[in-house]
């Protein structure tokens, strides 16, 4: 336990220099109640571009609810969500999930949610953000162009599958994969969608020691090498903390900064 705390303090001082980076996500005064039960009460949170934040909180404290608001599934009663990704600053309060996703937000679902009847490769390919022209008209008319776009997207998808160590399973049906493998494909999908801000809902849940360590290394790598901004909800905070710069605890609808475990 002490070792972890030490490790953590070290990380904090290391990351403190990053405060000069531009912000990537900013929520102001988020409020949400479910039928009289106030879940979020004026929640403020700012993430700097490229930083990873760990969010903890008791069961039912509203962590998933916060992620749902950020990804556009729930509209907050009050407050706003601003994204500053891909060089654009936009207010996405109450926007649709599609629009928010196209602005650069991606989510790893707690229950993963791959497309079960599709192969690993098609799962990744379907996520290709701006690369594919998805209209029916394009599909039936300009197919030489479509084929070319698709070839590029396919190469990128294979590359992304290789990055998460799933290149050899690209033709496996998604519902035949193990939980750890599914999570890897889901991460490749986020890379393919060119998401810059990742919401990770319990990325280590359901994994054995070895797989958890592997996913952890991948996340660390996408954060440091690829500069992905991450908001991680994770109960296994001892494992997660070393790769996260700051930690927050969600209670009574507010965030409290945590400096040690």
């Amino acid at each position: 336990m002490e070792a972890v705390a030490e490790n953590l303090n070290e990380t904090i001082t290391l990351r403190a220099t990053e405060d000069v980076l531009p912000w990537a996500v900013r929520t102001a005064n988020l409020c949400l109640a479910f039928g009289g039960h106030q879940v979020l009460e004026g929640l403020n949170l700012t993430l700097q571009a490229g930083e990873a934040i760990l969010l903890r909180g008791e069961n039912g404290s509203g962590k998933t609810t916060l992620l749902n608001i950020l990804s556009g599934l729930i509209r907050p009663d009050a407050g706003s969500v601003l994204l500053h990704l891909k060089g654009r600053e936009i207010d996405v309060t109450g926007s649709s999930p599609e629009r928010i996703a196209r602005s650069g937000l991606g989510r790893l679902w707690q229950d993963i949610r791959l497309f079960p009847t599709m192969t690993a490769l098609d799962n990744v390919l379907a996520a290709s953000a701006e690369l594919l022209d998805r209209t029916a008209l394009a599909g039936i008319t300009c197919w030489p162009l479509i084929r070319r776009q698709e070839r590029v997207a396919r190469e990128r998808a294979l590359h992304n599958l290789a990055l998460v160590g799933m290149a050899d399973r690209s033709d496996s049906s998604a519902d035949k994969l193990s939980v750890g493998q599914m999570k890897r494909v889901a991460l490749a999908r986020l890379l393919q969608a060119e998401a810059d801000f990742w919401l990770l809902d319990e990325p280590l849940a359901g994994l054995d020691q070895v797989s958890a360590e592997e996913i952890l290394r991948l996340l660390e790598r996408f954060n440091t090498d690829h500069g992905k901004t991450m908001l991680v909800v994770e109960h296994q905070h001892e494992r997660m903390a070393p790769i996260c710069g700051r930690m927050f605890f969600l209670a009574n609808g507010h965030l409290q900064p945590e400096r040690s475990v």
């Binding site: 990804s71 556009g72 599934l73 649709s96 999930p97 599609e98 996703a101 196209r102 991606g106 989510r107 679902w109 949610r113 791959l114 497309f115 079960p116 009847t117 599709m118 098609d122 799962n123 390919l125 379907a126 996520a127 290709s128 953000a129 594919l132 022209d133 998805r134 209209t135 029916a136 394009a138 599909g139 039936i140 197919w143 479509i146 776009q149 698709e150 997207a153 999908r189 969608a193």
Partner: peptide, 24 residues
């Protein structure tokens, strides 16, 4: 085409598809 692939993604999991930016 990508249109067909996106349709299948939508059929499999509409919410996941939307959250990847697929205009369902």
């Amino acid at each position: 085409s990508p249109f067909g692939l996106s349709l299948q993604a939508m059929r499999d999991d509409e919410l996941a598809a939307r959250s990847l930016g697929i205009p369902v």
